[in-house]
Design a protein around this nucleic acid. Sequence first.
DNA 1: ATTCTCACA
DNA 2: TGTGAGAA
Length: 267
Amino acid sequence: MSGEKEQWFGPGETARRVGVTTKALRVYEREGLVVPHRAESRWRLYGPTQIARLHQIVVLRDLGLSLKSIKKLVGDHPRLRDILRLQRETLESQQDKIKRAIAIIDVALCQIHEGRDLSLDELAILTKETLMQQPADKKKFLARFEALIAEQDPTGQASRTFDEIKKEYDGDAHKVALKALMEEASRLKEVGDVNSEAAKEFVRRVRSRTAGIRRSTSQAEQELIRDAYTKTLAEAQARSESLWFDPAVLEFFRQVAQGMKERGELN
DNA sequence: ATTCTCACA
DNA sequence: TGTGAGAA
């Protein structure tokens, strides 16, 4: 083909051209990502194929991929699109982690601000409660939830409503407030009286917060979303996936609201 | 300016 | 996932 002879470089020159250290080259070799040729002298020699592969390795590494995943990717013939999708997912999950950490700090700061001094032990408990939840499962749950809504939603109106609800509750302040609400709900549910004044008061309070959403959403859409939720929950439980909320608490308040409706205590 | 191994972060 | 030391 071309008159140009194949060029072979020693470790130093190769490292310089690829933008890594010779140490790194040998780590990649140890992990089975590149196999350089050897001169009689036992010196490593890197040719065009090796250099090309090294370039692939460094670009994937700069994306934050582990050597182990890079090994799988360069060995196979992956579409760049698939690599980027994969990496996007892991970055998103890291982002979730950071967001949860911030939420924990916000809750702690909030309590300190109120004059309540947290011990490290209490912070540890807070961390366990908030950080231990599985972001992957949560995302999976929400994705399935949305998919089921879309399935039964020819006009797309219910999906738009769901999007709005998600946006509405996406802020950190809302998340902290929501967490407080869930804790209160959990305590009320432990009491177990669906007709207690406290439970009914709680329902009224939550409904007043969500009045706007309910007003702008048709009965049919609300039912559609409810159905999708029930199905998603059933599927998740069938796979015994962990959830970040307690479905029993929601069911408890569904009963409270049901009772109130039957007695005409709700509009 | 290279090889290898080992300890260390 | 690399780095630095030390011997060859």
